[in-house]
Every structure is written in structure tokens, then in C-alpha cells.
Design a protein around this nucleic acid. Structure first.
Length: 257
DNA sequence: ATGGTAGACCCTCTA
């Protein structure tokens, strides 16, 4: 979102047009009490929020009732950053994921920065949690801003990004380690082409030059992947007035058998 | 490791 309050007209217009059953929002940049709950409920959504002042913050919208399961990623009781919200809704386990950015990835000595170490530790916690979730054999969809460029075809200029926290080899290895547990990158299950982006920086006219990144992902359990009907990226909202720097990624699941 | 732009908020931080 890059602030749900600054982006409310954009969000409402997209929810009206796309009318998803479930929506996973990241970077709402507000505490729970500041979330524009009434406006979104007016569109027929139930709302769950894990907010935080100024930074981060995630939310989950659903046309079905929501049973919140987790408001933080397990594995570090001292982590106060609002980056994870997991719930059951419509018979599917879903989570809104805002994985740490991690930049700058290096400090002055050329060693991993504290921010990058936090990112890698967070990814290790996500690995542990995905493994635990897979053991339940639930259909689940973990979607959001992963701040991970999985492969060269997911960035407009790979060499320029080689030392960035979103593309460092260690980041991509941690991503692959999660995938190798047996979850599916929904977009890649349906698309092989390079150059399909979900994010364009505000800086340097990135949108106009199509200097984008694919960093917003949905990870599906086998039980959800078996029901995956379609997945795509909706570029429309990124071209709107006062747009977020990210654009929605979506997937459609068939009814459970 | 920097610069570009945007948002929150108290002027600098995060992305």
C-alpha cells in the first residue's frame, strides 16, 4: 500500500473493480485504530489488522468470516515489527506477508548489515513456519511483499542489482530453500516469461521505463496449488494517480473437491 | 554505497 490512509481511494477503487474474495495488504503504515475499517467494510469485507505506527503493518480482508490465527511470525518474541498476519477464511489458511527489505545489505566494513541479518533471520523463521504449516496438510496461501527477486528474469537490470538485499545470492538461496519445502510460487506455476513485474520504484521514472521488479509473491501449499486455476499481475493500479509503488498480484483457486 | 521520490512525522527514517 505504502500507507493505506494515503492510498484509500486507490484501494477502494481496486477492491470494487477486482472484487477479490480475499485481499492481503502490506505496508499500511498505521496502527489498528487508524485503519479505514468502515470504508472497507462498506464494500462487504471483514477486516483483520496487525498494525504499527509509521512503518510496516499488514491487513487481511475477506468477504467471508475471518478467524485470526497469528498476528506475528513465530520464532522471535522480541521482534516488534508488524509483518505477518495469518487467518482462516473461506476454508483456506491465508497470510499477509511483509518480508523485511534488508537494504542497505552491507555496512562500512563490507559485512552484512544489521538490517540484512534481520532479513535473513526472518526468512529462516518463515522457513520453519512454512514447514510446520505443511505438516497440517491445509490448503494455504501466503501472499505479500517478499522483497525477494527470485531470478534474473524478475529484474530489469540484474547486474545492477547483484549486491542489493532483494537480489543477493544469499536472499535467493533462502527463497529457494523455502520453495524446496514443497510450496509453489503461484505466478511461476502459470507464467515462464521474463519481465513481469509487480513493483516499480518512484525514483528515476522507473514506471515509465518499465524498470521493475517481481517481488510480490504467493506461496501455495500442495493442497492449494492443486486448486490453482489462474494467477496474474494487475498492472492497472500502478498507472493511476497517487499510485502505490507496488501493483496487485492475484490468484484464483477452484472450489475444494 | 549513492541517488532518485514518496510517506510519516517532527526532521530523519524507511523503502
Amino acid at each position: 500500500m505504502n500507507s493505506i490512509r494515503a492510498r484509500l481511494p486507490n484501494a477502494l477503487a481496486w477492491l470494487r473493480d477486482a472484487a477479490p474474495d480475499v485481499a492481503l495488504l502490506q505496508e499500511i503504515k498505521c496502527i489498528d485504530e487508524q485503519f479505514p475499517r468502515l470504508e472497507i467494510e462498506d464494500l462487504g469485507y471483514n477486516v483483520a489488522v496487525a498494525g504499527q505506527k509509521t512503518y510496516n503493518g499488514v491487513a487481511l480482508l475477506s468477504k467471508r468470516p475471518i478467524e485470526v490465527e497469528l498476528t506475528a511470525l513465530p520464532g522471535d518474541a522480541d521482534d516488534g515489527q508488524a509483518r505477518y498476519l495469518e487467518a482462516l477464511t473461506g476454508g483456506v489458511r491465508v497470510a499477509s506477508v511483509y518480508l523485511p527489505n534488508g537494504n542497505p545489505a552491507f555496512d562500512e566494513d563490507g559485512r552484512d548489515s544489521a538490517k540484512y541479518a534481520y532479513k535473513l533471520a526472518w526468512m529462516e523463521r518463515l522457513y520453519d513456519h512454512v514447514r510446520a504449516l505443511l505438516a497440517t496438510e491445509d490448503a494455504f496461501v501466503l501472499g505479500g511483499d517478499y522483497n525477494v527477486i527470485p531470478e534474473e528474469g524478475d529484474v530489469y537490470d540484474p547486474p545492477a542489482w547483484k549486491d542489493d538485499a532483494l537480489f543477493r545470492p544469499e536472499t535467493r538461496a533462502a527463497w529457494r530453500k523455502i520453495l524446496h519445502l514443497g510450496v509453489t510460487d503461484a505466478f511461476r506455476a502459470h507464467h515462464r516469461e521474463a519481465g513481469r513485474y509487480s513493483y516499480w520504484s518512484y525514483r528515476g521514472g522507473a514506471w515509465g521505463r518499465d524498470h521493475g521488479l517481481r517481488i510480490d509473491h504467493m506461496l501455495l501449499s500442495p493442497q492449494a496449488a492443486d486448486r490453482l486455476h489462474a494467477c496474474g499481475i494487475d498492472k492497472g493500479p500502478r498507472g493511476a494517480e497517487k499510485a502505490s509503488d507496488h501493483t496487485p498480484v492475484w490468484c484464483e483457486l477452484k472450489e475444494a473437491p
